[in-house]
Design a binder for these strands. Structure first.
Lengths: 199, 199
DNA sequence: GTCTATACTTGGATAGAC
DNA sequence: GTCTATCCAAGTATAGAC
C-alpha cells in the first residue's frame, strides 16, 4: 500500500471536478470532456472508473454520509426539534453547497436520476413532516394544510442560490454591511419559519 | 386575410408544444425533433419560423404579458400590498404553470438565457422588495435581513411543483380530503408568509 | 408555408497501445 | 491505471422540392 502523496488519483479528481461542474451547469449541461479537462485526466477514465457519466453522478451522493439523515427525533418538543432540523440542514448546505445545489436542480427538473436518489431525499423531508405533524397535534404549531406548509418550508430552506441575473436585486439589501455568519443565517431562517407556523 | 379555422398554423403549434415540453423536461432536455413531433409539423419549421431553438424559448415569454408586472403599488398599506402581490403571483402561476415552471428551472440552472429574461424577473421581485422595505420602515413588518427574507418569500412562492419522486411524502398529508381551491392556496400562502414577517 | 432528405457538430463510449 | 485515437448516436440547422 502506498501513501497518498501530492496529487490524488484520477477517480478522486474526476469526482471533485464533476461535483463542481454539475453544480455549476447541471448534469446535462456538463460534458464528460469538460469533466476530464477540469480534472486533468484523459477522457477514457470516466468510463474506466465509473462505467459512464451517470455513475459519476450517483457516486457523488454515495460518497457523502449526511449524519443528520439518520437523526432520530424524540418529538417531545417539536419546536426544539424543528429548530434542530433547520440548523442541521443549513449546516449541511453550508458544508456541501454544490451537492445541495445539484440536488435542488435535479428535483426541479424532475430528472430521471431522482429515483435512485429518492432514499436520501425522502428520509430527509419525512423527518420534517413528522416534526410538523407532531407539533400540530401537540398544539405547538398552527397551519391549515400540511402539504402546503411542507412546500413553504422546503422552499424557504432550499432556495438559497446566488443568481447572477438577480444580484442587483439583493445587492445593498442590507446596507449595514454586516457579515453573514452561518449563525445569523440559521437564526433568521428559524425565525421566519417558526413565526410562519407558530401560534 | 383569412379566418382561423380548425387547426392553427405551425407557428402556434410549435409554441404550444415547446411550452409543454420545455416545462416538462427543461430546455436542454427537449429536442427540436420532439417539439415538432408533439406539434405535428415538420422538423424544418422551427428554423423557418423562429430561426432556431433558442428563439422559440424567448417567444414563449414575449407572448405573455403579465399584467401584474406593471402593477403600481402605492405602499400606503404594505401589508395589503403584500397580500395583493402574493395573490396576483399565485393567480398567474395558476394560469401559466408551465411558464412559471420553466422560469423556475432556468433560474435554478442559471441558464445563459436568463439574461434576456431579466426584465421580467427583475421587475417582479423588485416589487416584492419594495413592499418589504416599505413595510419595515412603517413598522408593519419585522425581519432581520432583507436579503434572506427575500429568499424565503421567493422560495415559498416559487417552490410549488409536483415531484413524482416525492409524491408519497405529500400524499395523504391532509387526510380530510379537502379540495384545494385556488383561494385556499392563496389564503394559506398569505398566512404563512405574513406570519413569518409580521410583528 | 410546409415537406423530405441530408449535412454538420457535438457528446458519450470504446479499442488498443503504453 | 492512464493515455490517444476513433466510432457511433443524437441533435441542430439547412437545401431544395412541392
Amino acid at each position: 500500500m502506498s501513501i497518498q502523496q501530492g496529487s490524488e488519483d484520477a477517480k478522486t479528481k474526476i469526482m471533485k471536478a464533476s461535483k463542481k461542474l454539475f453544480a455549476q451547469n447541471g448534469y446535462e449541461g456538463t460534458t464528460v470532456r469538460e469533466i476530464c479537462e477540469e480534472a486533468g485526466v484523459a477522457l477514457a477514465l470516466v468510463s474506466y472508473h465509473f462505467g459512464g457519466k451517470e455513475n459519476v453522478f450517483y457516486a457523488l451522493f454515495e460518497a457523502v454520509s449526511p449524519d443528520f439523515l439518520n437523526r432520530d427525533y424524540e418529538l417531545q418538543d417539536p419546536e426544539a426539534d424543528l429548530r434542530d432540523f433547520i440548523q442541521e440542514f443549513i449546516k449541511f448546505r453550508h458544508a456541501e453547497p454544490d451537492l445541495i445545489n445539484l440536488l435542488q436542480q435535479e428535483i426541479i427538473m424532475q430528472s430521471p436520476r431522482l429515483e435512485k436518489l429518492q432514499t436520501y431525499i425522502y428520509t430527509l423531508w419525512l423527518q420534517l413532516r413528522t416534526i410538523l405533524e407532531a407539533g400540530r397535534e401537540r398544539g405547538c404549531f398552527y397551519y391549515g394544510s400540511l402539504k402546503h406548509t411542507l412546500h413553504f418550508v422546503i422552499g424557504a430552506l432550499i432556495f438559497m442560490k446566488k443568481v447572477p441575473a438577480l444580484d442587483a436585486l439583493f445587492e445593498s439589501a442590507d446596507t449595514d454591511g454586516n457579515e453573514e455568519s452561518l449563525e445569523d443565517i440559521i437564526a433568521s431562517t428559524i425565525l421566519f419559519i417558526l413565526n410562519g407556523i407558530r401560534i
